[in-house]
């Protein structure tokens, strides 16, 4: 975990995995966790605007200081993992997390 927030007590039940921002907005509900390989500051801005619970960057790449600063400012939890997209999704799916679908 790279960026923590004040109230980290949030229950996450849904996940969305995508590198395309519009895809998230078209199919994702509020409160979801976002898994992405796209290391961009825009991801954090988007997560804040759309009330997402947090962002997971896959592939063990370290986000830039800009990304981290934005996440701290916006209070968006950021996690990094060595796992690939496939593995990260599989693990969370096996733990019972559900796809974030827009109603």
């Amino acid at each position: 975990m790279l960026v923590s927030v004040k109230d980290l007590e949030r229950d996450i039940t849904t996940v969305h995995a995508s590198d395309l921002i519009s895809q998230v907005l078209a199919s994702c509900s509020r409160g979801a966790l976002w898994i992405t390989g796209l290391l961009d500051q825009q991801i954090i801005n988007t997560a804040e605007l759309f009330d997402l619970s947090g962002v997971v960057f896959i592939g063990n790449r370290r986000p830039s200081a800009d990304i981290i600063d934005t996440a701290v400012e916006e209070q968006i939890p950021v996690l990094v993992t060595k796992l690939s997209m496939f593995e990260a999704c599989g693990l969370l799916y096996a733990e019972g997390l559900q796809p974030a679908l827009r109603s």
């Binding site: 590198d19 395309l20 921002i21 519009s22 895809q23 907005l25 078209a26 796209l38 961009d40 825009q42």
Partner: peptide, 12 residues
Amino acid sequence: ERGFGAGLGLPN
């Protein structure tokens, strides 16, 4: 490469 271009913006 910046995460745009899915072609979903206007329809959404």
